[in-house]
Design a protein around this nucleic acid. Structure first.
Lengths: 223, 223
DNA sequence: TCATTATTGATAGTAATACTATTATATTTG
DNA sequence: CAAATATAATAGTATTACTATCAATAATGA
């Protein structure tokens, strides 16, 4: 996995950035350090000025890569889901049994990411923390319909629908495949958040438990 | 229901506001009109200055009721979940069969709110729209642990755990009652959002469908 | 290698946001 | 009617979220 990914460039919709951050050292530094800073102070308190100070670079230079911090978060999310899609594809290819394939897929999307080192400048474990804490903010805006039209959430929707395909293999009769998968993917992020902050309304406590919960749920729903 | 609620004062944690908005006409106006304005322009674009202009009142007067717009949203959410708790209690009281009671409870929390007129100055249907679009923002902040300690999310957690109790009546063996219920409650908000904005990753299309999906899911999971 | 071009940095500036403070003016209540 | 309270008006500050301009540096290619 690590070997394969190190040769792959994660594809992100061009409209999300002003200049592709993958094309320069400064761009990579922006992506790398923004992940650390957002994790540290939270997206709401994050500003390009603070990021500039952190990377010893000018605020205005960052604006040459991203229009605003919202777009940067959309970029990080797209990168994350694109990376997740690779993980999904590689993990489920060659598995013939649909149930086994689905279990594998659910495990991949619901488990907490720890210490994946497939890319040099992106810390996937911390990016996963950001997605857990901030992902819904990328869609929950007044501009969602416009941005959806422009393809900002394409990769996310593709990940969902890829798993929907597997669900349909397991049980073609089940009428809520899309809602089930979107509930699992978004819900598992939420469960990880609850595990961390609102422990009294979740049973999940370690990485494995969230996955267990959703594997159990899926099995019961589709049988 | 309407008659009963008109005599009830929804209780909200005192720490959320500077001055209880229920105690004055201006306070009520702030609550009433903030719901309309947040629905109209979105929470991110909402400011106390704009609200002041809308209600023909001064920005500084609003600050005497709420420290900042985040606290106002927490107040609106608390009000919503408190109101939801009343609906839950009244709808499930006197139902003896646990399964029937659970189905009723799930229907209440997952269905879209339409035209409830139990309180004069709060439009519950529009408040429901705000909760669908903005609720996660009340918890997904860097201050969540501190605010949780201060009891900001108590009512929300109580609603969840009330339903958890019913789940345990239906199936005491099921090991993920809390995660199931928090997934349903948060997930149904998300499904309503998807129905409105990202239709390709949900099967829900009208109010009834989201409820159907979760009723079906719960039945399958708990049997 | 030198000239061109692209990239980054530094500085300045604007409008809006998120408040706080002060004082004046109503309004309520005892 | 006086005292207390609530609201409005105005002003002011620090920060945010940018945009614009120009200088300095680095990369490239003829």
């Amino acid at each position: 996995m690590n070997i394969i990914l190190s040769h792959l460039k994660i594809q992100v919709n061009e409209k999300i950035y002003v200049k592709d951050p993958e094309t320069s050292p400064l761009g990579k530094k922006i992506v790398e350090q923004s992940i650390l800073l957002i994790d540290e102070i939270g997206f709401d308190n994050f500003t390009f000025k603070k990021l500039g100070e952190k990377i010893g670079s000018n605020e205005s230079s960052i604006y040459r890569y991203f229009e605003n911090k919202h777009k940067l978060l959309v970029y990080l999310s797209s990168w994350y889901w694109s990376w997740m899609e690779y993980k999904l594809v590689f993990a489920t290819t060659n598995i013939l049994d649909p149930t086994e394939k689905l279990n594998k897929a659910i495990t991949i999307v619901t488990e907490k990411v720890t210490n994946d080192t497939s890319t040099e400048h992106i810390n996937e474990a911390i990016l996963n923390k950001i997605i857990i804490a901030e992902f819904t903010k990328t869609v929950q805006t007044k501009e969602v319909d416009q941005e959806n039209k422009e393809g900002f959430f394409l990769i996310y929707k593709r990940v969902i629908n890829r798993i929907v395909g597997i669900v349909k293999e397991v049980n073609p009769e089940y009428p809520f495949a899309k809602s089930l998968v979107s509930t699992i993917v978004e819900g598992s992020l939420h469960q990880h958040f609850l595990t961390e902050h609102l422990k009294t309304i979740t049973d999940c406590n370690e990485s494995v438990s969230t996955t267990e919960f959703y594997l159990n749920l899926t099995t019961n729903v589709l049988r």
